[in-house]
Amino acid sequence: MNDGPRFGIGRGPLFVERQTYRRRRLMDAARVVPVVGLFLWSIPLLWSKLPEAAVPTSRALLFVFGVWVALIAVAFLISLPLRPVDKPEDQPGRNS
């Protein structure tokens, strides 16, 4: 994506102030969330389907919904401080 720190001529500073730094790490977090979700929801692929070792549906249900709730909560927490601010990075036309 295009929000990471950019280097080189005219690409903004190499190091940024604390506030911007925090915001960029939040963006990183926002990008990581779906990856984590995908990983967690892929775990059922490993569950055994043999009758003697099968996972009860109730437990599977709790697992999937538990991950779901956690993802929603994390997404909510991340989305709160990510409200747009008037900063050049998110403003269109920066390098035009």
């Binding site: 994506m1 963006m27 926002a30 990008r31 969330v33 779906p34 990856v35 979700g37 995908l38 929801w41 549906t57 599977a60 249900l61 999937v64 779901w68 993802l71 929603i72 994390v74 997404a75 269109p92």
Partner: peptide, 27 residues
């Protein structure tokens, strides 16, 4: 059984991953 959940799990991942694709699409 639980297969029906997949139909919602995919879009959920897309939504929580809005920073990747949806934000760009909307812009």
């Amino acid at each position: 059984g639980l297969e029906y959940l997949t139909i919602y799990l995919g879009p959920s991942l897309v939504m929580v991953g809005w920073w990747w694709i949806l934000r760009k699409l909307v812009r």
